[in-house]
């Protein structure tokens, strides 16, 4: 039906896009092209006489860089872990909060708290909660008898990253809840009424109506969240600074450290480009899927 609207020289859809395109060009696209260009240069800003075009030199250097690969691996763990944690908790919360009960509005507002707490506070608060000398989490676990002594969560190479991931789950799950709730409410109630008349049980309704109707929004939310989570570094930086050692280094964190601590903008840009490539790969699969889902609505 939509094809009837298509005309060869229809400028209307473009005019709707124009404001968004104009500002993104200035505020994201130009800076991005500039930074992308830097990735082909040896560009350590305090060595002005050594600035030169090295083409793919930085890209080769990254592939031989141990820290790059550690950060790469951590980034994959980080994305997969944080997204699934946030999704599961966010989904369950949304389903619960979609039901009718007297304190629903209150509960809906309260679960937003993690999301509206500024990152600096979130990070410092969790760092303090995890503290190995007087942290609340250790205190509770010891009282419950799960631990027999305080454990240095953030100072241990194998627990630092998972601990931060848990903190990020806390911060980000309300986002999933809000988006999924909005999606749930957009599902026409008639569909359920019809299904009820046809004798469907709640399980069947969930899998045959709720989930398929929610799919486009769910996929988009996961997709956008993946990109956001992959790029988030403030919480990691405040909680561990990427440590201990390289245990919680991710690609954006490594790129940030190279850029603003080492002033090596060339190499930092290269790492950022690799991160983008990694995300493009992850997301390509996804986008194909989403566009397909979209087709079904056409």
């Amino acid at each position: 039906m939509i094809r009837a609207l298509r005309r060869k020289t229809d400028l209307y859809p473009y005019s709707l896009l124009l404001p968004a395109l104009t500002v993104t060009t200035f505020i994201i696209f130009i800076p991005l092209v500039y930074t992308f260009g830097l990735s082909f240069f040896n560009y350590v800003i305090w060595k002005p006489h050594e600035i030169k075009f090295v083409f793919l030199g930085n890209y080769k250097k990254a592939l031989e860089d141990e820290v790059f690969w550690i950060s790469f691996r951590n980034t994959l763990i980080w994305i997969a872990g944080v997204i699934s944690l946030q999704l599961v908790l966010g989904f369950i919360t949304a389903l619960l909060l979609n039901r009718q009960f007297f304190w629903r509005s209150l509960a809906r507002s309260l679960i937003l708290i993690p999301w509206v707490t500024p990152s600096v506070i979130t990070a410092l608060m969790w760092r303090w909660l995890y503290d190995g000398n007087s942290g609340l989490i250790n205190d509770i676990l010891v009282r419950l008898g799960i631990l027999d002594r305080y454990f240095p969560w953030l100072a241990n190479g194998s627990t630092a990253l998972p601990a931060i991931m848990f903190a990020l789950m806390w911060q980000g799950f309300p986002f999933f809840t809000v988006m999924i709730l909005a999606g749930l409410q957009a599902i026409p109630t008639e569909l359920y009424e019809v299904a009820k008349v046809d004798g469907a049980n709640p399980m069947q309704m969930f899998f045959h109506i709720t989930l398929p109707m929610l799919m486009p929004i769910l996929l988009t939310t996961i997709l956008l969240r993946t990109i956001w989570v992959a790029n988030s570094l403030d919480i990691i930086f405040i909680m561990t600074g990427g440590g201990p050692g390289y245990a919680s280094h991710t690609l954006p964190l490594y790129s940030y450290i190279r850029a603003y601590k080492g002033l090596d903008f060339g190499y930092a840009s290269t790492i950022a480009v690799y991160l983008t490539l990694l995300l493009v790969m992850i997301v390509t699969m996804y986008v194909i899927r989403i566009l397909k889902t979209e087709e079904r609505f056409r």
Binding site: I28, L223, L224, L233, Y256, Y260, V273, T276
Partner: peptide
């Protein structure tokens, strides 16, 4: 719109 969102914005 998606791809430009993938680049770590702190570098911009």
């Amino acid at each position: 719109f998606l791809v430009i969102n993938m680049f770590p914005i702190v570098l911009l």
